[in-house]
């Protein structure tokens, strides 16, 4: 009962985008001996779901999404040591390498997608912006990625999404992973044309689609 009230407060803290409050609640859960994984799954994460839906509907905006993600990440940081102690791991759904392609410095959308994937249980390696095909290939090798996410916001740089796919092929890595693309000028048709596995329109959809990719 008490737990449930705490979980509810956690959900609210994430929705309201309150990192300090989220940290406080995470600490409270630790002191009360609550299972940290349950605190994440039943407390904080449902808040992220609500915010993600609001963003997709155009009722919430970048600041909302970013503050909520911050709150979620603060809470996870507090709970993580205890999870390690209990040998619990947040169930890792898969390893994702993500970045904005060469010549393109738009980072906000890419970072949002990375954050949402991390908040939803993926191990995310964010390579930043203006990432060359070779840098993608190196990172994929290094972490043994399941999924590669390619962001491009410029029509002039979307051709570099294809360049990464071609370079992955040349390196013999293409068949062992899935490629998802995104960004304003991208589309499902473009994904098909350049041989990507999927496209997602926004960060909320990206989480669902990437979940589908790793299950397939």
């Amino acid at each position: 009962m008490a737990n449930e009230r705490l979980f509810e407060e956690m959900t609210k803290a994430v929705i309201a985008g309150l990192p300090d409050k989220a940290r406080e609640l995470a600490n409270e859960a630790l002191h009360a001996g609550i299972d940290p994984l349950a605190a994440i799954e039943q407390g904080f994460k449902p808040g992220m779901d609500v915010v993600g839906e609001g963003f997709a509907r155009g009722e919430l905006f970048i600041p909302d999404l970013m503050m909520s993600s911050k709150a979620m990440q603060e809470a996870i940081a507090v709970l993580e040591p205890e999870m390690m102690k209990r040998k619990q791991h947040l169930q890792t759904l898969g390893k994702v390498v993500i970045g904005t392609v060469q010549g393109d410095i738009h980072e906000i959308g890419k970072t949002l997608v990375a954050t949402m994937l991390a908040a939803n249980g993926f191990e995310v390696h964010d390579l930043g912006v203006d990432v060359s095909p070779q840098q993608f290939v190196n990172a994929v090798r290094e972490v043994n990625a399941d999924v590669v996410g390619l962001s491009a916001l410029l029509t002039t740089t979307m051709l570099n999404q294809e360049a990464v796919i071609l370079t992955l092929k040349e390196a013999g890595l293409r068949d062992q992973l899935k490629v998802i693309i995104g960004g304003v000028p991208a589309s499902p048709e473009w994904a098909k044309e350049i041989g990507a596995d999927a496209y997602a329109e926004n960060a909320t959809e990206a989480v669902e689609v990437v979940k589908g990719l790793v299950q397939a």
């Binding site: 155009g58 919430l60 905006f61 970048i62 600041p63 906000i108």
Partner: peptide, 9 residues
């Protein structure tokens, strides 16, 4: 550019 508002709302 975001549903009639700026991306920052």
């Amino acid at each position: 550019d975001a549903h009639g508002r700026t991306s920052m709302g």
